[in-house]
Design a protein around this nucleic acid. Structure first.
Length: 435
DNA sequence: TTTTGAGTTGTTCGA
DNA sequence: GTCGAACAACTCAAA
């Protein structure tokens, strides 16, 4: 029997059917589209059984699958390496073109290059589209053609480019008749791919418009819901970046700037992939870290004796989320007060954060450590006590996460602030002299 | 090529 | 309590 001619849409970080660029292109191309997702076993094998992010992906896929069934199609979910999966698909179908939205992380780019080469040998095209960002890493460059390393001029250029190139959406949801018509495929259960329910609730996809309106007023106070909790949805593409940006343009410039920060760090990781493991400013790799494992453990568990630090870490451990203000405080504390390598903290966040995004996580940690592009100056050391007094005056946030706060059973500070501050200044100064 | 203005999120000290 | 300056020069971006 002759194999059926089809195109494929490969879902990755774009787990939605609406305003999806590559999906729109696939559905416009004239052949039936087989929508697929691959649980990549090379990635999954490193994750704990109760990884809430896998659970979130699974729930998002289930939702896509159900919508596809209602239009006579189905999502095909695989468990394996992309190479194995495409080998299998091409044995069943006559695949013309593979569509996917581009991913700018170093590992993903390597993977996509491999798949591109493999498919090319078989005469199959692999077309990537821009979807995760409004402007790709090479669309916003300095006048000399080199990438920016400072946020503010980058954001100015970004905004100027937006005026000249307004956002165009891709109504993929209007083309659902062009999916491959098929009996439903079995969607593997969470257990079948080797995972369990985590019990961690996910932020909803509804946009908190009130939080956006007052974002600049409330965003620094962890006790109030002053942030939008969109990070998880941006990470997995369950919401459209374009749609959020269009909303930001008419609502709150400060919030728009946060979306631009996200693209700034995607741009940085694309052009400077070595910053995943090295300081953006090489001199900072001369810092003699203390790297005390016992202190690191106390930080992870939220037992440093500094309430804002501990509340933040406990929020992270319990929910997979931490308020942005508190992320800065705990990161500053780990790197500067405890003199523990930012990579340790970065790895811990990577393991725990639901919204973990490599580019933003590396960018944020290097910013806090002072080693990043456009980073906080090294002598800017957050005082965890005054941060608490400024941003959690009533101790609401702290009491929520530290029941024993203000009792004798609460930990004593593991390091004295002024001592730690001076020690940090000395160590950093010494490292910078070596460059 | 040179020059100039500016740079996410802070803290401490002294008047 | 409040305010400005110092922290430490350095690098970047653009004219």
């Amino acid at each position: 029997m002759e194999k059926q001619k089809i195109n494929i849409h490969w879902f990755r970080r774009d787990l939605r059917l609406t305003d999806n660029h590559a999906l729109h292109a696939a559905l416009s191309a004239g052949l039936p589209v087989l929508p697929i997702f691959i649980f990549d076993t090379t990635i999954l094998q490193h994750l704990p059984k109760k990884d809430a992010r896998v659970e979130f992906i699974h729930a998002s896929l289930t939702s896509i699958h159900e919508k596809l069934i209602s239009v006579g199609s189905s999502l095909r979910v695989y468990n394996g390496t992309p190479e194995e999966v495409f080998e299998k698909i091409t044995s069943e179908y006559d695949v013309q073109t593979l569509y996917a939205n581009r991913d700018y992380e170093p590992n993903a780019r390597e993977r996509d290059k491999r798949i591109y080469d493999t498919l090319k040998e078989k005469g199959i095209q692999f077309i990537g589209k821009k979807d995760q960002v409004v402007f790709e890493p090479s669309e916003v460059l300095k006048d000399d053609g080199l990438p920016y390393t400072v946020y503010t001029p980058y954001s100015r250029k970004w905004k100027a480019r937006l005026s000249a190139h307004p956002i165009i959406c891709y109504p993929s949801e209007e083309l659902s008749a062009n999916f491959l018509q098929t009996a439903p495929f079995d969607l593997p259960s969470l257990e079948q791919i080797g995972f369990e329910k985590s019990g961690i609730p996910f932020p909803t996809i509804e946009l908190n418009t009130e939080a956006i309106q007052n974002y600049h007023l409330n965003r620094d106070f962890p006790a109030i819901p002053g942030t939008t909790r969109m990070s998880l949805h941006l990470r997995f593409g369950t919401v459209s970046t374009r749609a959020l940006t269009l909303y930001a343009l008419t609502s709150n410039e400060k919030w728009l700037n946060e979306l631009i920060w996200r693209e700034f760090y995607q741009m940085i990781i694309y052009h400077f992939p070595n910053t995943v493991s090295n300081a953006f400013k090489p001199a900072y790799d001369f810092i003699e870290w203390n790297n005390n494992e016992e202190e690191f453990k106390l930080w992870c568990e939220g037992k440093t004796g500094y309430p804002l630090v501990d509340a933040g870490m406990r929020e992270l451990n319990a929910t997979g989320f931490m308020h942005n203000r508190v992320r800065m405080v705990v990161a500053s504390f780990l790197t500067k007060h405890l003199l523990i390598d930012w990579r340790w903290g970065e790895r811990y966040f990577a393991e725990k954060l639901l919204d973990f995004d490599l580019a933003s996580n590396i960018g944020g940690w290097q910013w806090a450590a002072g080693s990043g592009c456009d980073a906080a100056p090294y002598f800017r050391i957050f005082n965890p006590t005054s941060q608490m007094e400024k941003f959690d005056k009533q101790n609401e946030y702290i009491k929520k996460w530290i029941p024993e706060f203000n009792t004798s059973s609460y930990a004593l500070p593991i390091v004295e602030h002024t001592f730690a501050r001076n020690r940090c200044l000395e160590k950093y100064k010494a490292a910078l002299l070596k460059k």
